[in-house]
Design a protein around this nucleic acid. Sequence first.
RNA 1: GGGUCCGUAGCCUAGUUUGGAUAAGGCGCUGGCCUUCGGAGCCGGAGAGCGGGGGUUCAAAUCCCCUCGGACCCGCCA
Length: 647
Amino acid sequence: MVSVNPFGDFRENCRDALRESITQLFPSISVESFLLDIPPNPEFGELASTICFELGRQMEKKPKKMAKQIVDIMEMDNFPLIKAVTVAGQGYVNFYANFTALSKTTIESIHSLDTTYGFVKTNKPKRIIVEHTSSNPMSPIHIGQARNPILGDSLARLLTARGHTVFRHFYIDDVGRQSAVAAYGYQKLGKPSPKEKPDHYIGLIYTLTSCLIEINRLKKETEKSIEGASETTQLMQRQLDEWLSIAAELEAKHPKLFNQLLEKTMKDKDKQTLVNNLNRAYEIGKEKARVLVREVCHLSLEGIRETLINAEIFFDSWDWESEFAWNSDVSKILNALKKTGYVYQEGPVLEFDANKVAEDFRLKEKLGMKDDYEIPSLTLVRSDGTTLYTTRDIPYTLWKFRIAEEVINVVGMEQKLSQQQLKLALWGLGYAEKAKNLTHFSYNLVTLPGYKMSSRKGRYISFDEVIEEAVKRAREEVETRSPQLPEAEKQKISKIVGIGALKYALVEVDPIKPVVFTWDRVINFERNSAPYIQYSHARACSILKKATKSKRLNFSLLVEPMERDLILTLARFPEVFINSADNLKPSAISDYANLLADKFNSFYNALSVIGAKPKALSNTRRALVEAVSIVIRNSLNLIGIKAPLRM
RNA sequence: GGGUCCGUAGCCUAGUUUGGAUAAGGCGCUGGCCUUCGGAGCCGGAGAGCGGGGGUUCAAAUCCCCUCGGACCCGCCA
């Protein structure tokens, strides 16, 4: 019989058995949940209940005694997956699986379900938007940001496999000031056609321009405040010094373009204002500004898209922020907000009182805030009439909710406050349900040892560079290990392995924890890495190629602890998957894949498949190996990593 | 100053949502394995009692309080 969740079936057997005994013995007691834990050691069985500790307290009896009573009356015949039940310790009830039955169900189900094994469908399918990456369109994706597409893509894969309808959206933040900065520089340089990958080229222009503007601004401001002793002046002086040293770095690295830009912008005494004007013109949709900024965006996005495709990360929709500004969605929302009473004017500036919303709807506790915490207000409109990122995010979010019932934003944790303010704006506007269905999937920074990466300051390692290096190193490995492979396949494998290593390194760590980037960390080919798991898969495939398939199987022959451990791990995959998808935890999958590879390698090393006697054992082990290969492949798939047949 | 998050062997991490039986891996260190199907491998050893203190509980790395250290936020940036 095919089971979508073999270990889950065993769990249900145990739960039912437990429930029957308990209701029979203690009909007066109502037990809500019969949670079963995986014991720390196989000698305690495959599942264990601690319910007698709880019952013992309620009924003032010894847990061990109750456990004995419960076990004594248990009718085992109704539960084919349970082999035995015992009492252990101070009152644990331990269940032992009937391995012949469990092995058969597990292996047969995996063979039969194949590419869908493990992917248990939810009974509440939803339409979900996963918005991710959404990086600054004016520079290449750097490795600090790369955690975002990798996590976002895994989430989308997990939720799709869970049976949801998922839409992957890239929000192009083209209205921000950074677009105006890059566009200004691009125009001054005479709209040059990129000499390299376009996002890298535009990114360089952005960094150089941004640097010149900052220096220009800071110089003017420090000159203005002549009495140079005040604290703010000192701060400005320090900032100026930092930007001057950045300028020196940039000039040394890109002398030609730097000096060209310097020369071309020399005459602009107030660059800051020019950029602000361009920003405003673009936001209100002035023709010239539209043409210019879009041109730069398109160039850069072409490069960004190339990077993502190279990493096999795809989107269903590319949403232009400017569309929401131009089609008056933003102004409609502003008007609606004004009517709520949660908005107040400070001169020309419009502020949103997030704190008041939280108090009126009693949301602070739900948002994990202390009662007396004063949520900062959110500026909606600048004094020059332009809006801010979060302001524009409100209509965008509502637009997403027209497509989907649930929205997950993969956004760095440094934006936590603004994501909360966004949520509160939805509450204030009367969209409580939407606010509840908006999730900020937050993740921590990837830093370079000692400092943060910054596009604006030009201090970053691009995603492209890291991919290139990873593939290059993988290529060297393939060359030494499998020199006989044809060139085309070597290339293909190097890419799968290199990118796999990279993705794995960034998925593996809990997103809430920071990662310090080092080359050896993200391009690791040893144990606990994608290549290690891929290698295990290739080994399994190698056996499958050599051993002929047979239908004459006998699952009762799989008695070795290593075989059982392996089968148990395979049987648990669906539960791991459900937990990972429902709790948005891709790292649970990378963990699992690694665990499975570990178990397989131990098995591989200790027991032979092809030469095993009798023949039925060999056949059955082969079936087990095939199941392993399927589950490794399925699990890696969820985190966007491919499993090569050989490497 | 206010807020959020993190703190597990020399280093990197899992486990914390849902409290349970000797705290799990990897790197590094170290002793073995030409044993057949791929050594990107396998088997073993040393190494932490979970930042510190208190509390709740039959039971705490997990929950609560205090405290120390680090990161991030508190922008008319995104």
